[in-house]
Design a protein around this nucleic acid. Structure first.
Length: 482
RNA sequence: GCCCCCGUAGCCAAGCUGGUUACGGCAGCGGACUUUUAAUCCGAAGAUCGUGGGUUCGAGUCCCACCGGGGGCACCA
């Protein structure tokens, strides 16, 4: 059994020691005694002297040990890189001007039985970084910073929404009917119920039920699951912010969205001008608004709308290399054309508006443009950041939309929606004009941390199982000191 | 699901058109060293070259399959 202590009294975080003694003269010794703890990340032995670097969650500080004053000096110099230790001693400055804690007492808290990667080169293999994030976090400074920033971004998001009196809720992750988005779900099974359940693809329909229930401003930040391909911007489970705001419409929501994103950037980064992928992004408000058709005209140079003859639309799509299916109507064709020709080109931030009804089964029809909806997506750096709209509130129209979706499903579209009778029943009780928004939190974090792959903002991204490779069971030798 | 690329010791990493005992660095091990900063110096060691087949007198290198990863496409409110 290990004789490592069950608990240990630490008096200072490393950053507190560093901050409080930044201006010591070289060679100075204070009479401030501190106890710090962390991992030994480097060691430089020099005979009767030894230097080490102790790292905790707040930073690094040098350790200074002397054979004549450090107890069990041989044991100290025999520590492994990566060992968790606690050190008690005075704060001092070496002759070369490196702030240090003198090792007057020390204790081993946990031995690192596996060697840490190269102290200088770190880990380059992404597989190792994602699989063994516990190692990556110690070795890769940027990784640690990214996840700290992620926490700050989400905290800022909550702070801003709470300040506007939105209420945070949690709704089911196990859904009897997958709904609220066009996506393939993961299926699971509940034994006692004897029923299949679906991991949610969106919380949308539950949150709008809450508006029916009188929660006028509501949001949820949580995981959703989509059974789709993986890429630099797609992880099968990812985090969404969804919010609903009674009595408001899409224009209000666009304003809230840009203020939210710019506000988070200001709070967390101190600026609304950021750099992404080598280019500047100006998140300051207001953001440009442009209809989908205006953008198609701008980027593809063709004028299309819902009145364009469908044969002509198909021909245009083919000209731009868009793959079309027989059951696509004009709305779907226009959306496909937009996605092919515009989306990746849009640096933004820009709100793309006026999505066709055909591709927006939960959005309310545009008050001035029949066939279109009051829906918008914000595009930043060529990526979809969020989606929002004036919500469809009429239960009869919603039923028709669901039925149209089921027709698509019957035509072979396994991402189409199915009729949710309870949701329709909720709408029958009355949903006032309401605006809704969904934000991809991981993508927002990517944007604000300058990260180009979602795996760098998700602590444990989905990977294939490694099947025993590199695990203790594989017969690899592990150094057990006890 | 498709295409391209990658996989050499705990980590980083050479290895040109196939040619004998696979170059090094860090970490680890032994030794020297009382102010180092990726400490330095000396010494010894550590490799089923992702796995399995195949071609060849000879394979880390060429071919096939599989495993894992990366990028792209498809898919993706």
């Amino acid at each position: 059994m290990s004789n490592a202590p069950y608990r240990f009294d630490v008096t200072h975080r490393v950053c507190e020691v560093v901050d409080a003694h930044a201006n010591l003269e070289p060679g100075a010794e204070t009479d401030t005694v501190v106890t710090v703890a962390g991992r030994l990340m480097l060691r430089r032995d020099q005979g009767k002297l030894a230097f080490g670097s102790l790292q905790d969650s707040s930073g690094r500080v040098q350790l200074f040990a002397m054979a004549k004053s450090t107890p069990e000096y041989e044991g100290f110099t025999g520590l492994s890189i990566g060992d968790w230790i606690a050190v008690t001693g005075i704060v001092m400055m070496t002759r070369r001007g490196e702030l240090s804690v003198r090792v007057d007492e020390w204790a081993l808290l946990a031995h690192a039985g596996r060697p840490f990667p190269d102290k200088w080169h770190g880990i380059s293999d992404p597989d190792t970084r994602y699989r063994q994030r516990y190692v990556d976090l110690w070795v890769t400074e940027e990784a640690r910073q990214t996840f700290i920033r992620r926490s700050q971004i989400v905290a800022s998001m909550r702070r801003i929404l709470h300040a506007q009196e939105f209420i945070e809720v949690e709704t089911p992750m196990l859904h009897p009917i997958p709904g609220g988005a066009l996506a393939r779900p993961f299926v699971t099974h509940h034994n006692a119920l004897g029923e299949d359940l679906y991991l949610r693809i969106a919380p949308e329909l539950y949150l709008k039920r809450l508006v029916v229930g009188g929660v006028e401003k509501v949001f949820e930040i949580g995981r959703v699951f989509r059974n789709e391909g993986m890429s630099t911007r797609h992880n099968p489970e990812f985090t969404m912010l969804e919010l609903y705001w009674a009595y408001a419409d899409h224009a209000d929501m666009m304003q809230l969205t840009e203020e939210l994103v710019a506000g988070i950037a200001s709070e967390v980064l101190g600026t609304t001008t950021i750099e992404y992928d080598g280019r500047e992004v100006d998140l300051s408000t207001p953001w440009r608004r442009a209809t989908m058709e205006e953008l198609i005209a701008e980027y593809a140079g063709v004028d299309v709308n819902l009145d364009t003859p469908i044969d002509e639309l198909r021909a245009i799509c083919e000209r731009f290399g868009v793959e079309t299916k027989a059951h696509y109507g004009p709305g779907k064709l226009i959306l496909e054309l937009y996605e092919k020709t515009c989306e990746a080109e849009l640096w933004g931030p820009v709100f793309v508006t006026d999505y066709p009804v055909e591709v927006s089964p939960l959005s309310r029809e545009h008050r001035e443009r029949p066939g279109y909806t009051e829906r918008f997506e914000a595009i930043v750096a060529g990526r979809e950041l969020c989606n929002g709209f004036s919500e469809l509130t009429d239960p009869l129209i919603q039923r028709q939309r669901f039925e149209a979706q089921e027709a698509d499903r019957d035509a072979g579209d396994d991402e189409a929606m199915v009729v949710d009778e309870d949701y329709l029943r909720a709408l029958e009780y009355g949903l006032p004009g309401t605006a809704g928004l969904g934000v991809g939190v991981d993508r927002l974090v990517m944007l604000l941390t300058g990260t180009t792959t979602i795996r760098d903002v998700v602590l444990f991204p989905t990977l294939k199982p490694e099947q025993g490779r590199g695990t203790a069971e594989s017969g690899e030798t592990v150094d057990h000191p006890h």
